[in-house]
Nucleic acid binder design. Sequence first.
DNA 1: TGTTAGCACTCTTATCAGGTGAGTGCTAAG
DNA 2: CTTAGCACTCACCTGATAAGAGTGCTAACA
Lengths: 341, 341
Amino acid sequence: MELTERKLRILQAIVSDFITSAEPVGSRTLSKRYGMGISPATIRNEMSDLEELGYLTHPHTSAGRVPSDMAYRLYVDTLMERVELPEGERQVITEQLAADISELDKTIEHAANLLSEITNLTAFAITPKQNDSRVNYINVLPADQETVVIMIAAESGEIKNTVVKLKTPCTEESLGLLSKSLTYNYRGKTISDILTMDIVRNFETDVEAMSRLADDIMPTFMRSLESMLDIRLYLDGLTNIFSIPEYCNIERAKMFIEMLNKKKSFTDVLVNREDGVIITIGNENKYDMMSDCSLITATYHINGKQVGKLGVIGPTRMNYDKVTSVIEYMTDNLSKAFKFT
Amino acid sequence: MELTERKLRILQAIVSDFITSAEPVGSRTLSKRYGMGISPATIRNEMSDLEELGYLTHPHTSAGRVPSDMAYRLYVDTLMERVELPEGERQVITEQLAADISELDKTIEHAANLLSEITNLTAFAITPKQNDSRVNYINVLPADQETVVIMIAAESGEIKNTVVKLKTPCTEESLGLLSKSLTYNYRGKTISDILTMDIVRNFETDVEAMSRLADDIMPTFMRSLESMLDIRLYLDGLTNIFSIPEYCNIERAKMFIEMLNKKKSFTDVLVNREDGVIITIGNENKYDMMSDCSLITATYHINGKQVGKLGVIGPTRMNYDKVTSVIEYMTDNLSKAFKFT
DNA sequence: TGTTAGCACTCTTATCAGGTGAGTGCTAAG
DNA sequence: CTTAGCACTCACCTGATAAGAGTGCTAACA
């Protein structure tokens, strides 16, 4: 059996209708509402075929048809049309995402914010991986007698500082020396490279005179570097799922919120997705907990290099065309906002 | 009518029973389970009195009694006994809350975490207000040709840095001078004092030679200072409310989660509470959205001064004695962990 | 006078039967 | 190939009934 032109049209109508109504679509409704010039009976026959092909399912005998994951996939790949965003929305997005690097995190959070508001879904954004980010300089500064601040600046503009209590006091000169020496050793190296080097030993041999000071500082320095690799996750619109009929039972809502609250594992899922606009539907998601969700992500770039992600998660029955357009427009804007060089 | 000793005993039994069972308590159950040597009929009479006094309510004629907010208040104030925490729990808390100042935020987040796990409620913690925190030093450091980092250290150990793009390049010396000058001007002053001073003008007159540089930097400096006053809110165990019978309907769960997700207003509520262990029950909360919740907060101290808060929010029917004990123990531990001087 | 047993009454909850309507699948005619 | 007609299925609503928990009242008892 083949997917004729008419079958496609019917399938498209079913998907569209179901996306807005959340109710199984019957043949009569379809024939009436979409006035496609064929009778319900004919549509029934076609629907029966589509079901056999795996595009539709049947909650029970006397209910209308519901699209399967396969149908959504087809819809997303070939049937749906990109939506031109209304000028108003475009403007809001462009305005709100104007940013400078010092506010990177805020801007990203804001983007998640905005996205959830526009789509009425749960939106999220993650900051870029810093694995390939290079160290620009390291500064160890005195805070008071026995406290110093380690400051690590990456070329990406990311700056991290950590306070360390020293066991033994030290002079400002030795700190200056340490800073210079650290910077000399690690400038231009990527964070993950430094972390995989046996850094403490390497370092001690270089500046023997200060090994005591280094003993105090290096463990924290390394932890600090490590934490620069942390990816931050911003979530917004969590409660939007409550207004979605599919999630009107407590159990599902709970699962959903719990899934998103496991920030670590959810971030992993996002990090492991490919670049560009990626849509995964229902069971296409490798993780059970998402098997009744669809996930749409797109990537934004910082200085054309590091890659963060922005996206939404919601029921498989979502407005793919609209949502995709919005996400794409937003990531484009972010990438532009974060282009400095 | 007076609250006799027996009435109190009955009320206590009703509250205890209702707290664990979540079901209206009937006279028969009470007489059997709590073997208080009086018949159901007598208990009924007493319950009827208690209802008249406002301590009990009646969902409907043929249901058992349910404690009112007033009953919980009485219970909390006079009837409940402090629970001695089991050694295991104490140990876990003590261990997990060992902290050093560089990890202040992590520790506080962790505390919220732990609290929600132990109590099975939604827990939260806020970082201290920094209004009275004094500036220790200010450092403006070169990052690259046209970028500098403003670093502000408070006496509390809190350090904030912000990246600024300069419009015109500058020398390392002038930055050093600026740092010294800023530190000289503001060291020992509280953040809120600095913010209320007309800082930019004051500053310009002091260091005229660098007014250009200052122009670039001061606005960001001020914003940076301002953001040091931000209170951070950590939430944990949001989904715990789903396992509470009172919240088994979507609408209430939604309200609850939405309320907590409005971080700004929720933080305000917390900040405005008095110090020490404070319990507010149902309608005692000034905000409608919390009128069916109870809120318990306690304060912890940093270096015996700044004050942050830790607490839980849940249905009025909660285990006040246990929860209060845990929170108290945890804040004591936090205050100890954060005592350095 | 306080306490208790007994009983009628109330109200919720669960269960079941019957009716309704949306929708299908099949068949036969156009 | 398309369509009208019809029987059939199934979810869902409704109303009735029964069971159960608990109260409130009354009268008897210590």
